[in-house]
Amino acid sequence: MVKLTIPEIELMSPGHTGCQGCGATIAMRYALKALGEKTIVSIPACCWAVMPGVWPNNCMRVPLLYTAFETTGASISGIKAALRALGEEDVTVMGWAGDGGTADIGMQALSAAAERNEDVIYVMYDNEAYMNTGIQRSGATPLGAWTTTTPVGKTKFWERRPKKPMVDIVAAHKVPYAATLSIGYPEDFVKKMKKAKEISGFRFLHIYSPCPTGWKSPPQYTPKLAKLAVTSRAFPLYEVEEGIYRVTMKPKKTPLKEYLMLQGRFRHLTDEDMKELERDIERRWKELLLKEEMTAKLEELNE
């Protein structure tokens, strides 16, 4: 018998309309493998609102509800309340929104749901821009990136602000679980999803999902880019459980340049620019390690 490192069950069918090499479809495939059949998904406007297919086709083998762009947090709170009223206690409710739908327009509904500690999973699949409407910058677009609204020209007006730290923002609401996941590390991905499933209360998962169309990267490099983002420390893997930070992967550092230069959206950067980005990333990495060290002391308080 073959030994598989992630569950064999498939709850996302082929025939979806995601682009060639779409990271967000890999993310959904893994998420449903981990959560299983007793799951309801709510999706706002984003690429995933069109990827299940053109009516009457649908690639999702679990119930899926569409909701308005800014309402994921409210939508999943309502679904959970309805299930509770029906006495269905063992169904996992998952909100599945993009980075624009989470870090920008969905922020207040997300914050409200986190503050109420709703018993739901909120996923932000992060392709680092508003991809479905044609690559506009979002709060999650990283420093240095080209998008159609942060164009590159004589004035070099590419993205000048760092990425919003969504896990830190949600964890600051004192929710039981928040974590970063990457499609480049399927086993870690499934482990965190399963862990989130078993916890009750608000769980926030930030999933790194490369987008060949928006990043101008060759489609075959989707998993490779996801791995390089982790090893270059551009997207560290960590979790925050009851306020305690834990970096779940501390890989040997790879040069940031290797990660950046596989993507057209960073091609304009000079060596000097890349050094600036590297400094920002190193600072964030150190900050993360300090948080891990500092919050470890909270464990003693918990005892």
Binding site: P14, G15, H16, G53, P56, N57, N58
Partner: peptide, 16 residues
């Protein structure tokens, strides 16, 4: 409410 109920396997994306 419109419900999409046909499994997407009927869509032959191999043509792409």
């Amino acid at each position: 409410t419109p419900i999409a109920s046909v499994n997407s396997v009927v869509v032959k994306t191999g043509a792409w």
